[in-house]
Measured scan of single mutants.
Amino acid sequence: KKSYVLIKVKNPKTKETHTIVVPEENLEEVLKALASQPNVKVVDIERFP
């Protein structure tokens, strides 16, 4: 059974918020990819039960 993680990201320029759902096993690479985006800020990470 896969567990999923909900990542909320915000664009500081446009103030838009997006929610991305990723499998927990991919969380680290997704966070690394997001960290390299200049106008993306991770605001929240939630685990799915």
Score class of each variant (00 low, 15 high):
Lys10Pro: 00
Ile45Ala: 02
Val21Glu: 04
Phe48Pro: 04
Gln37Val: 09
Val9Thr: 05
Lys13Ile: 15
Val9Asn: 00
Asn26Gly: 06
Asp44Leu: 15
Leu6Pro: 03
Leu6Ala: 14
Glu16Gly: 07
Leu27Val: 05
Glu29Asp: 08
Glu29Arg: 12
Glu46Asn: 07
Lys32Ile: 08
Lys32Arg: 13
Lys13Gln: 11
Asp44Val: 12
Thr19Ile: 13
Lys2Ser: 07
Thr19Phe: 14
Val30Arg: 02
Lys10Phe: 15
Lys2Asp: 13
Ala33Asp: 07
Phe48Ala: 07
Val22Cys: 09
Ser36Lys: 13
Pro23Ile: 08
Val40Gly: 03
Val21Ser: 06
Glu24Lys: 04
Pro23Gln: 10
Ile20Glu: 01
Lys41Glu: 13
Glu24Trp: 10
Asn26Ile: 12
Pro49Lys: 04
Gln37Cys: 14
Asp44Met: 13
Phe48Gly: 06
Phe48Asp: 04
Ile45Cys: 11
Lys32Val: 06
Glu16Thr: 09
Tyr4Leu: 14
Lys8Arg: 11
Val30Met: 10
Pro23Asn: 10
Ile7His: 00
Lys41Tyr: 09
Val43His: 03
Thr14Pro: 00
Val42Gln: 01
Leu27Glu: 02
Lys41Gly: 03
Asn26Trp: 14
Leu31Ser: 01
Lys15Ile: 03
Val5Ser: 02
Pro38Trp: 02
Pro12Gly: 14
Val42Tyr: 02
Leu34Val: 03
Ser3Ile: 12
Lys32Phe: 06
Thr19Cys: 09
Val40Asn: 04
Glu28Cys: 13
Asn11Pro: 01
Asn11Lys: 03
Ile7Asp: 00
Ile7Lys: 00
Pro49Trp: 03
Ser3Glu: 12
Gln37Thr: 09
Lys10Tyr: 15
Glu28Asn: 11
Val22Leu: 03
Glu28Gln: 09
Asn11Gln: 02
Pro49Tyr: 05
Glu28Ile: 08
Glu28Ser: 06
Lys32Leu: 10
Ile45Tyr: 05
Leu27Arg: 01
Val30Gln: 03
Ser3Leu: 12
Phe48Leu: 12
Lys15Thr: 05
Pro38Cys: 12
Pro38Lys: 11
Gln37Ala: 07
Ala33Ile: 13
Leu34Glu: 00
Lys13Glu: 08
Asp44Asn: 15
Lys8Gln: 07
Leu31Gly: 00
Lys41Met: 14
Glu28Lys: 08
Asn26His: 12
Pro23Glu: 09
Val40Met: 13
Val21His: 03
Leu6Lys: 15
Leu31Arg: 01
His18Pro: 00
Gln37Tyr: 13
Lys15Ala: 08
Lys13Val: 14
Glu16Ser: 08
Ile20Trp: 08
Asn26Pro: 00
Pro23His: 09
Ala33Trp: 14
Phe48Lys: 05
Thr14Met: 03
Pro38Val: 08
Ala35Cys: 06
Pro12Val: 15
Ser36Asp: 08
Tyr4Ala: 03
Leu31Trp: 02
Ser3Phe: 14
Glu29Phe: 09
Glu46Met: 13
Val21Thr: 05
Lys2Trp: 03
